[in-house]
């Protein structure tokens, strides 16, 4: 079991780390789109696609980058009690409460897949003049949510290991 968990954690953390390292440069993608938007607006005709494209980039950025942000420990917690607990106690509590987190992510993913199927079935397009098809961004969102769940499970395994006094 420990062997499996170790392997899982190493693989998932590794994959999410690399994806996150790529996604973090997404800030320049957003910046580039918005700068092009201001340039084209000032000197030529305003572009149809910039605002929406920037929104897609933002969504990809935070959803696909989400697992790496968990690894970085940037998702704040209210530490009124948590801050005072021992590492062991935290691992115990976390290993239960992370199930709630996984549940939330699962419901998000369920809705995402439902919405993605709809988008593919009806070839859904954004109701804008640019009219981009929506399945690509919805696929990215679903993939990101799936990776988030994998990462949350990895956190659970790490907590279980902590309780057993091991380190994965």
């Amino acid at each position: 079991m420990t062997g499996f968990m170790r392997g899982y954690v190493r693989t998932v953390d590794g994959v999410n780390y690399h994806i996150g390292r790529v996604m973090m440069y997404g800030i320049f993608v957003m910046m580039g789109i918005l700068l092009w938007s201001s340039i084209s607006k000032t000197f030529f005709l305003p572009s149809l696609w910039t605002l929406e494209m920037a929104q897609f980039a933002m969504v990809a950025y935070y959803i696909m980058g989400g697992p790496y942000s968990i690894q970085l420990g940037s998702n704040v917690r209210m530490d009124l009690f948590y801050g005072r607990w021992s590492v062991q106690t935290r691992a115990w509590v976390d290993s239960f409460t992370v199930l709630f987190l996984i549940f939330f992510l699962g419901v998000l993913l369920y809705g995402g897949i439902d919405s993605l199927i709809y988008a593919i079935q009806y070839n859904e397009r954004s109701p804008t003049a640019w009219r981009p098809v929506l399945w690509p961004i919805k696929s990215v969102m679903c993939l990101g949510l799936f990776l988030m769940i994998l990462q949350a499970v990895s956190e659970l395994f790490k907590d279980i290991a902590h309780i057993r006094g091991e380190e994965l």
Partner: peptide, 12 residues
């Protein structure tokens, strides 16, 4: 779609 031919940039 219709107004774009007159140079309007439609935003939703």
């Amino acid at each position: 779609r219709f107004l774009a031919q007159f140079g309007v940039v439609p935003v939703t």
